[in-house]
Each structure stands twice: as C-alpha cells, then as structure tokens.
Amino acid sequence: MTDVAKAGETRRRNDIRDRWLLSAPALTLIAIAGTGPLLIVLIYSFLAPGSYGDVKWEFSPNGWFNVFLSRDIFDNTVSLADAHYTIFWRTLRLALATTVLCLLLGFPLAYFIASRPPGSRSIWLFLITIPFWTNMLIRTFAIAEVIRNEGIINSLLMRLGLLVAPVQMLFTDFATLVGMTYVHLPLMVLPLYASLEKLDFRLVEAGYDLYASRFGVLLRIIVPLTRPGIIAGSILVFVPALSSYVIPLVLGGGKNLMIGNLIELQFGQGRNWPLGAALSVTLVLVVMIAVIFYMRNAGEPGGRAHG
C-alpha cells in the first residue's frame, strides 16, 4: 500500500470512529427511551400473569393467545376473540374517520393561512397553537361541558325554541368523533401549512390560465405538490388516534371500548399484564404497517418532485 493510500485509509477509519462517537448520545437516548421500554413490553407479553397484577417470571403464550383467541370457561372450546376484533376494527375506523375529517377541515384552513400576506400568517399560526396550551384532558372535559344535555348548545337551542327536549350528544360515537377531530386538528394543519406555504402560487395561476377549474387546480396541482404535508399530517393524526384513550372514555362514555381502553383495562381491573402487553405490541405493529403504507405513497413522483 502506498503512503497516500495508507493515509486515506487512516482518515476514513478516524472518520467512522468520530461518527459513532458523535451519534452516541442520540443512540443512547433511543435505546433508553425507545427500544428499551418496547423490549420490556415485548418480554412481558410472553410471561404469565401474577395474581394481583404484575407478572410471574415464567414463559406463557397465553397473553398472545388471548389477543386473538378466546377459550370458553365452561367447555374449554377455542374460538376467535370476537370482542377484540370488534374493538380493533372500531378503533381503526375511528382513527381513519378522524384522519379524513381532520384533512377535510385542515386543508382549507391551512390553505387560508398560507394565502394570507406573510405578516399576518404568524398570527393565524399562533391562534392554531393556542389549544396546545391547555392539557388535553381539560379540553376534553370542556367539550363534554359544551355538548352535555344541560350544556350550552342544548340549553341555547331550547331557549330559542328550536328544541323541546335536549338532544343526547355526550356519550355517543358522534361526541367521540367531534372530540378526536378537535384535538387532532392542529397536528394536521401545521404540516399541511408547511407544505402549502412552500407551494408556488404562480403554479396555481398557471393552472387557471390553462383552463383548469377550481377543482381541477386543487386536484391536479395543489394536492400533488403538497402530498408530503398531507402524508405527514395524516400520520401525525392517525397514529395517536389509534391509541386514543381519554376521549372515547370521557366523551364516548366508555361504552364502546377502543384498543387504548382495552389495554388500560388489562393493566388495571383485568390484572392481566401479559395480555395488555401483547395488545400493546399488536398496536405498535398496526401503527408500523400503517406508517409504512403511508410512506410508500409519499415516495411516488408527486411527492418527490416537490422536495
């Protein structure tokens, strides 16, 4: 090996070492805060439940078994765990509905903000972030306060004579969806705004100039060019919506369980930590599949060209 090559080799080795050293803090954090807890949950899902919660340190597949199947306590027959599938399906539907609603409401809102003069945009963005100042639990109870039978809406409508008896809104699926949409909307608006703000509005004008209708411009120019924002916003809403827990409980009345409530139940009253852990891992897998699906879509030409 020549001296020059040797020097190059040394430099490259030092470079690799430096990179590892520099990324060590980040890697440590990921290990402690991310991978570690997930690993503990994964291990717990393969253990046996303790009598008063907690786990017994012996291997048992029962946690996972119970996620998907149920054994009849009387005749010991095995059947699919229908209740769990129903809950999974219901949660998925709620998360999807929340994402779609947030997108439908958030897109015009983000577009409105992005088309304001630069000076006033920051004011609008500031207004969007105000809900973050208050704890989500408090905001959820506030919604309950507004929509309950004696709440502002019902009493106002009755005072105006538009209603004779209050309309039951609290403790319905409607209430859950409203709450979910309200809480998650800013998470959709912010990435959408970031994409729309970068959008060259001359392209929109060019679209109109070339005989596109409003809808044509939206569909063929604005949406393809803001796809990264749409994907990012959808992930940011869909993922927490899948594991929502407080809103279905407070606004839905806990009648229709979501995965989050089911998991909480296993760690609480159910005293079946391995099942709770297995359910949690299942949820993580569902989220991962969903995110990969979204990312795949983001990789298509429309998204790429914008970046």
């Binding site: 001359r202 004008e205 109109y208 100039d209 120019i221 060019l225």
Partner: peptide
C-alpha cells in the same frame, strides 16, 4: 371573465412549469 374563461395564455417570468 375568469382566467380559465379567456382564450389568452401567459408565459410566466419564471416559467411556472408544473414540477410534478
């Protein structure tokens, strides 16, 4: 008339080609 109703087309200063 709206721009999409006029038989008039524009060549924009920075071209404004659709990048996608």
């Amino acid at each position: 008339l709206l721009p999409n109703q006029r038989p008039v087309n524009t060549v924009f200063q920075n071209y404004a080609l659709f990048p996608h």
